[in-house]
Design a protein around this nucleic acid. Structure first.
Lengths: 237, 237
DNA sequence: GCGTTAACGTGGTCTGACCAACCGGAAGGC
DNA sequence: GCCTTCCGGTTGGTCAGACCACGTTAACGC
């Protein structure tokens, strides 16, 4: 037994790099060996090395650059945002993740984030506040407003200090981005809606400032479900 | 402006497939065109096609098989579990995700899941119950017990009906798997701990059955934080 | 000393080749 | 006629080699 299915070449490369990362032989900011060197070291073809590196790149672990010098080569970046977003988007496209589940998960993560913030008076909400100020500007197009809206929510999640939560939240938000934009077209009085959304944002911040976790939960839930309802977007039963 | 960075060949392939999925030209269970055909159709080399397919495979969207017949070729599967787990593991390895954040996220997802279950009397907990029964068996090794423990939690998340939550939960759990196993070694009286864990599982189920969401939250939080504390595992400040 | 140019190292891509696994039908034996 | 065997075709898995684009660096000419 313990019969090993003949390890696929690219998996060997992936495991090698994951091992180097775990053992600390490789860390953020550092460079991987050149592709040709990795190939000969591991006894695989360069194309197999490239398949593994491509996976790492899409998952947001490395960034590749041509030429020479400090910016060239494959460099460990460990930026979770892009990869998570890509994965979620593809899974939704392939019907692995139903939209209502994405929506519901986003909701629960945001509720947690604001409740968490309300319980930590030392949290830094400056970024969220400045985004809210920017949303008060006149002459914002719908797209610009929605971009700031998204930024506000992401900033809140980031303020929670939990990288996994904020990255997941951002990925989920991005995944349903097109649906949110499409829903805006179904809203009759956009100016009134925008004003209400701004007001609701302020309410969320106020609840956090007051240290009232439950109020913050309710406010953020009402804010999100309200928009979904107005825009006629699919929600879980 | 709008100057397009010369689209990388593999990205063309990835976008093409994502588009086909979104437009419904491709769905779960269906087969992608052969690599050589995709290459000539899109005007790229086969190696570029393979890089894109590798990404899709690792992300859990497709399964590839050699030979001919119905099982051969690249088939859309859309099984989110593996890909999510892989991504989280790599991000943790690369220090993109701190372990305490993973732990905290797992906790909040599980709390949501049990609270959600408590509010839905029609939820099907049979799978979770049978796992709990299996944990009562004598002569379970620590590893076997922990595997069943993990299964119990995953089953609970699955019962919530939210695929995103359960897949993320499973991925997070798997990511910290090695830490959990390592922690078990630091526990003095394992039999007593195992008995307590079983009892706590039963309490969680009881709270769900009673429809008491808050009690379920408290029970699952106490269960998880208790183990982490006993095992001396890192938790958020 | 300074500007120009050539060499080199890197990822990005393509092509062609071969292998392994698998299925399906044709050929053969009974 | 039916079963077994074998062969060819299809498909992914992998490798080797080649070429390009890009950016640094060092050598060169003045």
């Amino acid at each position: 037994m313990t019969d090993t299915p003949p390890a696929r070449a690219w998996r060997v490369v992936l495991d090698k790099i994951e091992g180097d990362l775990l053992e600390g032989r490789l860390g953020p900011g550092e460079r991987l060996p050149p592709e040709r060197e990795l190939a000969s070291t591991l006894g695989v073809g360069r194309s197999s090395v490239r398949e593994a590196l491509r996976v790492l790149e899409v998952m947001g672990l490395i960034r590749t650059g041509t030429g020479s010098g400090p910016t060239a080569g494959a460099i460990v970046t460990a930026t979770p945002h892009g990869g998570l977003s890509q994965l979620l988007r593809l899974q939704v496209a392939a019907h692995g993740f139903p939209i209502p589940d994405v929506y519901e998960t986003r909701l629960l993560l945001e509720e947690w984030a604001v409740a968490h913030l309300a319980e930590r008076p030392d949290a830094d909400l400056a970024d969220a506040r400045s985004t809210l100020d920017a949303m008060a500007a006149d002459a914002l197009s719908i797209d610009d407003f929605l971009a700031l809206d998204a930024q506000f929510h992401v900033r809140l999640a980031e303020a929670s200090g939990n990288v996994v939560v904020s990255a997941t939240m951002a990925g989920l938000r991005e995944t349903i981005e097109s649906y949110i934009r499409g829903g805006a077209a179904r809203i009759a009085d956009w100016d009134a809606t925008a004003a209400r959304l701004r007001h609701e944002h302020a309410e969320v911040l106020a609840a956090i400032d007051a240290g009232d976790a439950e109020a913050a939960r309710r406010a953020v839930r009402a804010h999100i479900t309200g928009y979904y309802s107005d825009a006629g977007l699919p929600t879980p039963a």
